[in-house]
Design a protein around this nucleic acid. Structure first.
Length: 776
DNA sequence: ACATGTCCGTTTTTT
DNA sequence: ACGGACATGT
């Protein structure tokens, strides 16, 4: 156990802590994964715990895989013991449910299908159509988000949603109607959505003492990674599993909680000590990853959050380089500059590893194109992942239907793919027959055929379809995974249709690409077979892989969202699109909690960097086709200027602010560059404005697009915010006096005087320009 | 039944 | 700018 010497004091304490609840508050880069893996090793080797009594839970397969690898390396050297079970929350639940779901007495069988969010949206869309709810008033997307929210926050989702009926909110009352219909269909299809996987497992363990005893008795020690991102069902699951031994070790960092939008509850980690009064708390705040300057930036930003446990990362690493800062004229220029920088780095350092991190997937396109143009190969995470492609989903739908005949969604997906002459009318007839009798589409199909209720034209294709699925179903008893995938491709005519299309269609590349994807699926099936996985496991895996799972740790250049970067590290990180409305995203405006979540995301992104951090934003960005001027992100304003090295070509927002011109002003020379402000300028022909603020003032004076008075004050303030523009009512922070509220504003231009009321101190008058106020 | 054309929303993050 | 959903034509 000489490896214990490779740990610092806090890490060692966490690793060797014995029985009972343990909370490890692990700041970014403080050796979190190391603590978990070493702790497992220590429990096994030092305390003689049987590896089968250990369970480690993570959020992504990527994290689980990495942990498994590190543990194998650690244990493999010294002993012959096995490796403990390392699983994601969702795959753990699938394992449990595939064995015991029939105990639930809710009608599900162990052959249940998993509906991913795409399937989910399709079901919701159908429900809405049946209930005659206009998709333009309530989008399926919104519905699914609210259903998920209800399921994750309330014991009784329907009751929760029904409360909305009393409120006169149209969308809410629509939801109260949609939800029961949605739940009914899933049940009838013997299908569970992602939320159900957790919730049904919790119900199963809660209500079935025998099943609970089995699992709680099996796992004597439970370790949970990224605990700050757990939601309520996950919290309940953990409680149920640790109910017997209370040997729970959770590791996380409240400052890195970035999944509130999908139900993560930061209170789980903040309140851990009250949930487990016997808990020991160990804080890891020594960072091994980043340079001092990078950590200074991270600390400076996260400090602006109010709801947090005070903590400041420190490091013994070198001071490091200044943070590069670039202000690009347009989004395209930003991408060009970043990729050029990457090119240079790759030339200098052949082993370089650089990540480009953005807020939204839509931003990836510019960087993809620029990399391609420059001939730089890159690894892009997310976006159009392999298992989301239509042809892959189609083949999987065949297999899902073969294993679960009640799976209406899969049936609808492939009944006419490839087109075999079963049209809308026939499908409607099928749906109608099923609805009237309360049976599945598959059963209705048999009925229509038996009763000769079909038109002459659709009879044949329908009969063939039935025979085909029946044959596939029959074959699933003995065939191997790859044989099944091959059968779903060939015996359904799917692959042949693509080959035909390739020879007749005007763009054969598309069909060829799809065929190649199918070959890739076949390869994956062979690999699954070698791992001795069943067809069911293969299909489950396809549903549960996350975008982050196609991250390649050896890639020199990686493009991904800030969210998927969590848990990773890179020598160089480029944080792009640092603009108000984009990052922080406009959706967070007016909601302080969401704004804090955006800031935590910023903190996560910054702390991915080891040696080099590069920050950029554009002056003009094209969003959804039209160009719009963009203001620097508030997060940039929160970074002390002395940490930044401005590498912008023309005058930048930063250089202007240093010259005291106000950070959002444009210089004359930039304004004259035609490509920079072409679009916004046109409406103001005959008069020149040299700043975004100036244009706004003009608009305001004309009453055009002026912020309307019925907007909430926070939203109005958000829209007009610049560093040097404070208006009465605004909450601000002063270096010396602390938090206060602006109560008066007088004067104009450079000489604006503000009156600010500081609780407990009194009213102060100050000149806006020199006051160094920050918005709260 | 299927191909072609037009319109509209879409983009926040994801197991 | 792009893709999906719907309408129209063959």
């Amino acid at each position: 156990m000489e490896y214990l010497f490779a740990l610092n004091e806090q890490q060692r304490e966490a690793v060797t802590y014995g029985e009972g609840p343990l909370l490890v508050l692990a700041g970014a880069g403080s050796g979190k994964t190391r603590v978990i893996t070493y702790r497992c090793a220590y429990l096994i080797e030092g305390m003689g715990v049987d590896p089968d009594r250990l369970l480690a839970v993570t959020f992504t397969n990527k994290a689980a895989g990495e942990m498994r690898q590190r543990m194998e390396r650690l244990l493999g050297e010294n002993s012959l013991t096995g490796v403990p079970l390392i699983s994601t929350f969702h795959s753990l639940c699938v394992r449990i449910l595939r064995r015991h779901i029939e105990h639930l007495a809710a009608g599900f069988t162990r052959d249940f299908s998993i509906y991913d969010d795409d399937d989910q949206q399709r079901v919701i869309r159908q429900c809405m159509r049946d209930l005659a709810i206009d998709e333009r008033q309530v989008t399926p997307r919104y519905v699914s988000a609210l259903i998920s929210h209800a399921k994750n926050h309330a014991a009784d989702a329907l009751a929760y949603l029904s409360e909305g009926q009393h409120a006169r909110d149209l969308r809410r009352s629509a939801l109260a109607a949609i939800y029961p219909e949605y739940a009914k269909r899933l049940r009838a299809s013997n299908a569970l959505d992602f939320d159900d996987l957790l919730i049904k497992t919790v119900i199963l363990l809660r209500d079935q003492a025998e099943v609970r005893a089995h699992y709680a008795g099996r796992f004597h020690y439970l370790l949970v990674d990224e605990y700050q991102d757990t939601n309520r069902p996950q919290f309940n699951l953990i409680r149920l599993l640790t109910d017997q031994y209370q040997n729970l070790c959770v590791v996380g960092d409240p400052d890195q909680s970035i999944y509130r939008f999908r139900g993560a509850d930061i209170q789980n980690i903040i309140e851990f000590e009250s949930h487990y009064p016997a808990a020991r708390v160990i804080t890891l705040d020594l960072n091994y990853r980043s340079s001092q300057r990078i950590l200074q930036v991270a600390n400076a930003v996260i400090r602006n959050n109010r709801q947090r446990k005070e903590k400041s990362l420190r490091t013994e690493n070198a001071v490091g380089q200044l943070i590069s800062y670039y202000h690009a004229p347009t989004g395209e220029d930003e991408a060009r500059f970043v990729v050029r920088g990457i090119e240079t780095s790759l030339r200098q350092e052949s082993e370089a590893r650089i990540a480009v991190l953005y807020r939204t997937n839509a931003q990836s396109r510019l960087f993809e194109e620029e990399c391609r143009r420059a001939g730089i190969s890159f690894n892009m995470v997310g976006g159009f992942s392999f298992y989301k492609r239509a042809e892959i989903r189609d083949i999987l739908a065949y297999l899902k239907l073969a294993l679960n005949n009640w799976d209406d969604e899969s049936l609808l997906r492939i009944i006419n793919a490839p087109s075999r002459g079963i049209g809308k009318k026939t499908i409607d007839q099928l749906i109608e027959a099923a609805r009237g009798r309360g049976i599945s589409l598959w059963e209705a199909l048999a009925l229509l055929l038996a009763e000769r209720m079909l038109g002459a034209r659709s009879l044949h294709p329908m009969a063939e379809f039935q025979a085909m699925i029946a044959a596939l179903n029959e074959r699933a008893r003995e065939a191997s995974v790859s044989q099944m995938v091959r059968a779903a491709m060939e015996e359904t005519g799917y692959a042949q249709a693509l080959r035909d299309k390739k020879t007749t269609d005007l763009n054969p590349e598309e069909s060829e690409g799809r065929l190649q994807n199918l070959e890739e699926l076949l390869t994956a099936a062979v690999e699954a077979e070698e791992r001795r996985e069943s067809l069911r496991e293969f299909i489950d895996h396809a549903a549960l892989v996350s975008d982050a799972d196609d991250y390649d740790p050896d890639a020199h250049v990686t493009l991904m969202t800030m969210h998927s970067a969590k848990g990773l590290e890179f020598p160089s990180v480029c944080l792009v699109g640092l603009e108000e409305g984009l990052f922080p995203h406009a959706r967070a405006a007016g909601d302080p909690d969401e704004m804090e979540e955006e800031r935590r995301l910023c903190y996560v992104a910054i702390t991915r960097a080891q040696q080099q951090l590069f920050l950029s934003h554009a002056r003009v960005r094209r969003v959804r086709g039209t160009e719009a001027p963009a203001e620097p992100s508030r997060f940039l304003q929160e970074i002390p200027e002395e940490l930044l090295a401005d590498v912008s070509q023309a005058g930048s927002w930063l250089s202007e602010s240093r010259r005291g011109m106000g950070r959002t002003d444009l210089t004359r020379s930039e304004y004259d560059r035609p490509e920079v402000f072409n679009k916004p300028r046109r409406p103001f022909a005959g008069k020149t404005y040299n700043s975004v603020a100036g244009i706004r003032a003009f608009l305001d004076s004309k009453g055009v697009k002026a912020p309307s008075s019925d907007e909430a004050p926070e939203i109005r303030a958000y829209k007009t915010s610049t560093k040097h523009r404070f208006t009465p009512g605004m909450r601000v922070r002063h270096q010396e006096y602390g938090q206060g509220v602006v109560i008066g504003r007088e004067g104009a231009g450079e000489m604006v005087k503000l009156t600010v009321r500081f609780p407990g101190i009194g009213d102060k008058k100050m000149i806006e320009k020199f006051a160094e106020l920050k918005r709260e």
